[in-house]
Design a binder for these strands. Structure first.
Length: 566
RNA sequence: UGCCUCAUGGUGUAAUGGUAACACAGCAGAUUCUGAAUCUGUUAUUCAAGGUUCAAAUCCUUGUGAGGCAACCA
């Protein structure tokens, strides 16, 4: 029995199968060249992570005969900004991928793209159209009826060339002229009804400045950029499937392309309880419905990062969801599982009491302070230990006490006993209330025979083990509890055609606890570190708002809670 | 009233004409100085109807449902 037989190889998705077949057939000289081509008009989100993991992952899997390019699809200067370029590069790097020398911009190809357009005109495959946008739309026909070709389609090559050059020279106003491919106005595929190739935009471009006033359309620039970079496999999402014939038309009709890429499509990621379109995310930011692109509730890479989600968790998640053409809706639980799995491994444990209730140990000396040794990680002795101070007055989680306990509740109750983790057991003797009847303090006694490590004879162990902090030593720190951004699984779909998805925003998606009681060692928590507050949740010391000695914590994800109240 | 694509447990995926499986979620138990983690067990699946075949999730036909397509956006 061989090792290989014991562990079958992971099954290939349809894209990887296709690439394996290309390689087996000896295509592309054994090279695999992919690209991740974002438009710098917004921040990357977890849907992009799926594409990044695919494209860069393919390059890693086929190394050294492979590479993945990062290319900015910056063909629309009216929407694009350098802020987005910078954030995209930072996010890709943070996710753990490297484009090496292969950083490109579609705008780098403007001159070549222009020459290819002249080639198309010369071949009689493109013409300058004078129709207005409205006329073009009207003449395009409908999905069930053919369109009508513009009278301009009959212009001579010479006239088209002259007009196109004058478009470039800036002789015309925006909307006055457009370069169109001459394909088929009766095609069932609307994208083949003489699609626009170039439009006039007297706009300042973030890289080319004012050098150009005509800009190529995505459908034109994308396949040619792929070909210019000798991309072998151009992978995009399903909505571009219908663009494929146009992609191929361009590749086949332009001479002098160094590469012959082909496009294939996969389903984009949809996640429950969030929205994923850049347009909607932009709206959340612009209308201050969240605190910027990196708000920890956002599905953006920067938001997830700031919430405390690790790159490893995102990569693992992307592996789990697979790759198909099925338009799926992935439960957020799958992501949460990937997050907990990684955080459980890397997070040191500490005590934090979010909603404190004071406990007085009536039989504990007033002036005594003891330190108990606590493990930093239960499954990793190498993580070491720390000393946690304890005195007569403590805080415990108010959830860990019930005056009228429900069935199966095995934390603290009147007359009941629990263990203070790593310390000793206590019994609740008295419940002190204020005039309004609110519990303000618990009077307890501790049992010295139950100290950590001791095993007293003939004594039943309490089922409940709770965390605690010393009232005298606790530090106060702000803790932000993040929850899902929306109250419904599919805010998009539920809002309908003309509905507003913001109506489903979760009003309780952020709760700030200004003064959580934390064990003193947490005072030194470095910004950008991951913690598990035992029995509560995973937290992340906010990298921006934390100051030396004054950390601010973001709740990344709660611990799974297996206890269901009966 | 057109064209393109898709359809496997609650969710995401695998099975490439030959025993429908894995992960998540759920449930039950073991274990535990975290009601976590870990371990064990378990519930639940091929959109429908025909056809081809010794044999169909897989191939064919017809339905049904979902998504996409008529920017000078990407």
């Amino acid at each position: 029995m061989s090792e290989a037989a014991a562990t079958p190889p992971a099954p290939l998705d349809f894209i990887r199968e296709m690439i394996a077949a290309d390689l087996a057939a000896g295509h592309n000289g054994g090279q695999v060249v992919t690209r991740f081509p974002p438009e710098p008009n917004g921040y990357l989100h977890i849907g992009h992570a799926k594409s990044i993991c695919l494209n860069f992952g393919l390059a890693q899997e086929h190394a050294p005969n492979a590479r993945c390019h990062l290319r900015f699809d910056d063909t629309n200067p009216t929407k694009e900004e350098v802020e987005y370029v910078d954030s995209i590069m930072a996010d890709v790097k943070w996710l753990g991928f490297d484009w090496g020398e292969h950083l490109f911009y579609a705008s780098d190809y403007f001159e070549k793209l222009y020459q290819f357009a002249e080639q198309l005109i010369t071949k009689g495959l493109a013409y300058v159209d004078d129709q207005t946008q409205e006329e073009m739309r009207a003449n395009r026909g409908t999905v069930t009826s053919p369109g009508t070709r513009s009278a301009c389609a009959d212009r001579s090559v010479e006239e088209n060339l002259d007009l196109f050059r004058r478009m470039r020279a800036g002789e015309f106003k925006e909307g006055e002229k457009v370069l169109r491919a001459k394909i088929d106005m009766a095609s069932k595929n609307m994208h083949l009804r003489d699609p626009a190739l170039y439009r006039i935009l007297h706009a300042h471009h973030h890289r080319t400045g004012d050098a150009w006033c005509i800009y190529p359309m995505y459908d034109y620039a994308h396949p040619l950029s792929d070909a210019l970079e000798s991309i072998t496999h151009s992978l995009c999402t399903l909505e571009f499937e219908i663009h494929r014939p146009l992609y191929e038309w361009l590749i086949n009709n332009i001479d002098g392309l160094p590469g012959q890429p082909y496009q294939r499509e996969f389903a984009r990621l949809n996640l429950t309880y969030t929205v994923m379109s850049k347009r909607k995310l932009l709206r959340l930011v612009k209308e201050d419905l969240v605190n910027g692109w990196d708000d920890p509730r956002m599905p953006t890479i920067s938001g997830l990062r700031r919430r405390g989600i690790t790159a490893a968790a995102i990569r693992s998640f992307c592996k789990t969801i697979g790759l198909t053409k099925f338009n799926s809706l992935t439960e957020i639980a799958l992501l949460e599982h990937a997050i907990r799995e990684d955080l459980n491994k890397i997070s040191h444990r500490a005590y934090g009491v979010l909603r404190p209730i004071k406990v007085v140990l009536t039989n504990y000396p007033e002036d005594l302070v003891e330190h108990f040794e606590a493990a930093n990680h239960p499954e990793d002795p190498a993580a070491g230990t720390r000393q946690v101070p304890l005195c007569r007055e403590l805080y415990i989680e108010s959830d860990d006490f019930m005056e009228l306990p429900s069935d199966g509740f095995h934390r603290l109750k009147p007359g009941g006993e629990v263990r203070l983790k790593f310390a000793f057991c206590i019994i609740c003797q008295d419940v002190i209330k204020d005039d309004a009847g609110n519990i303000i303090e618990l009077r307890c006694t501790y049992d010295d025979t139950t100290r950590h490590g001791k095993k007293p004879e003939g004594r039943t162990k309490p089922k409940g083990i709770i965390h605690w902090v010393s009232a005298r030593h606790a530090i106060d720190a702000p803790v932000r509890l993040y929850d899902r951004l929306f109250t419904v699984e599919t805010p998009d779909a539920d809002a309908g055609e003309d509905g507003d998805f913001t109506q489903f925003l979760n009003a309780a998606s952020l709760e700030v606890i200004p003064n959580a009681k934390l064990e003193p060692s947490l005072k030194a928590a470095a910004p950008g570190t991951h913690w598990q507050f035992e029995r509560v949740a995973y937290f992340y010391a906010d990298p921006i708002d934390s100051k030396p000695g004054a950390p601010v914590f973001n709740r990344t994800v709660t611990l799974k809670d297996g206890w269901v109240k009966k």
